[in-house]
Structure formats: structure tokens, C-alpha cells
Design a protein around this nucleic acid. Structure first.
Lengths: 120, 120
DNA sequence: CAACAACGTTTACAAGTGTGATCGTTTGCC
DNA sequence: GGCAAACGATCACACTTGTAAACGTTGTTG
């Protein structure tokens, strides 16, 4: 539903909101190499999609996320899992494991997580 | 690089190749609700992108994957992990765990996987 | 009050996508 | 040998996306 470029703005808003266009431009546009017009367009598309809301403050708007980061992450992850791993998590982990992309830290965290789940 | 609709054809070819347009149409187009023209267009785009190859057989072509499923899966998964989970696997698993999307089967498989990795 | 600056809103435009129809050519059948 | 069917190759067209400029309005300041 929301595009990659739009998601970059969402991430900024999830990290801190509300924000003005100016703040978003400074914080995101800067390192993204985006011009002002680009940020404005993206904000408008997000508004039309209902992913953010805008509250007037003087002559400008304060933007806040409506779509939560958690919902977005769930939607993206579920879509990937469904398309490529039969909707299940273990095969994805196995895939990364086979490609040696599973760091020691990952393994430790997974072990801990599973121990905790085991206690239920 | 390759789009969602194109990936549907790739999946069919990964499952069994080579295949003719006719076979792909019967197998994929059918349950996807695609017309013949749609399948032909997608095959041409995949050819132009170098994701599949075509070998002439009489008046028709036999299509085979060039891009491997494993490479595609890695590329898609890595992209998601990088964008949403800092490039690491454990946070993704934790996310699913929090949303109770971790089935008993997943947990069992993860435990087994970690045990095997531990033996290295 | 007039000119300007700051904002949001509209418009632009090329590339990619989903979805298909049309065109041209080869080939098998009457 | 001509006509229809089967194929691949091209063209079509609306919609989304990335990226931005132009426009219109309103508040500010000399």
C-alpha cells in the first residue's frame, strides 16, 4: 500500500512525531538527497492514503503517523513470509542459516527467545 | 528487479522447467485469472531482464529460469530484513512471536535448527 | 499597502507494472 | 497452394512511483 520512498518518511515520523515539513526535510530529505518538493509530494500521498494525519498549527501542519509501525512491519513481513516461505517463520531462519547470515548475536537472541517461550 | 506478477511465473518455472507458454498458461494463468496475452508479456519482460532463458523447440520456446529461486529469496528477504529489522533475523522472529504468529511447529523447528548449529 | 517569503496544493513527467489486444510470420491442413 | 491456426513480438493504456517544479494563498515587513 505505501511505497518505499513513503516508508522512509514514515520511519522518521515513527521515531518522532509530530513533525513539520521543514523538520522532515532537514532530517530525512537531507541524507536522502531529496528536494523540498519531493518531501511535500510524498507527504501529500501519505495523507491521501490515510497513513498520516495533519494538524494545523498556524500556517503549517504537524504530521503524525496513523498507520503504526507495528502494523506496517507485520504487513510487510507477513507478505514476504506468505509469498516465499509458506507463511512460516522457521523456513526463513533456516534460509539465512544456510547462507551463513545468522550472526552469533542472532543465535543467542533466538535461543533466549525460545527459552522464554518454553516457559509459558 | 523482478515484479510480483513476474515472480508468480518464476515460481512455476522453479517448480518445473522448462515449460512452454501453453503449459505456463494452463498452470499459472488459470488460477491467476490471466489471459494469454498477459502471460506472454510477462515472459517477454522476464527474458529482457535476463531472469529466464528460452530455447527454441520447433515453432515455440521452452522457458527455463536463469535467476535461481535461492538468489531471489535471498534478495527479497535481505531487503526486508535490512529495511525493517536492522539486517538481523532475531528481531523478525521476535516480532512474529509477539504477534502470536509463531506456531508450535515453527518453535520446534527453530529449536532443532539451533541445536544443530550449536554442535558445529 | 505593497512586495516578499513561507506553506500547502496541483501539475509534470519518465519509468515500471498489471493486464491485455493486435500484428506478423510460420506451418499444418483441405 | 491458399487459408486458418498457433506462436512470439509489439503496441496499448491506465495506474503507481520517484522526483520535482509551478501555482496560489496567506502572513509578514518595510
Amino acid at each position: 500500500m505505501i511505497s518505499d520512498a513513503e516508508a522512509v518518511l514514515m520511519h522518521a515520523l515513527w521515531a518522532s512525531s509530530p513533525m513539520t515539513t521543514e523538520q522532515l526535510l532537514a532530517q530525512v530529505g537531507e541524507n536522502q538527497g531529496w528536494q523540498e518538493g519531493t518531501v511535500k509530494s510524498l507527504l501529500n500521498r501519505l495523507l491521501n492514503k490515510g497513513a498520516i494525519s495533519a494538524e494545523r498549527e498556524g500556517r503549517r501542519y504537524l504530521y503524525s503517523p496513523v498507520l503504526t509501525r507495528d502494523d506496517y512491519v507485520t504487513q510487510q513481513s507477513t507478505s514476504l513470509l506468505d509469498r516465499l516461505f509458506g507463511g512460516r517463520v522457521a523456513p526463513l531462519v533456516a534460509h539465512f542459516s544456510e547462507h551463513r547470515k545468522l550472526s552469533a548475536r542472532d543465535k543467542a537472541q533466538l535461543r533466549k527467545l525460545l527459552r522464554e517461550l518454553g516457559d509459558e
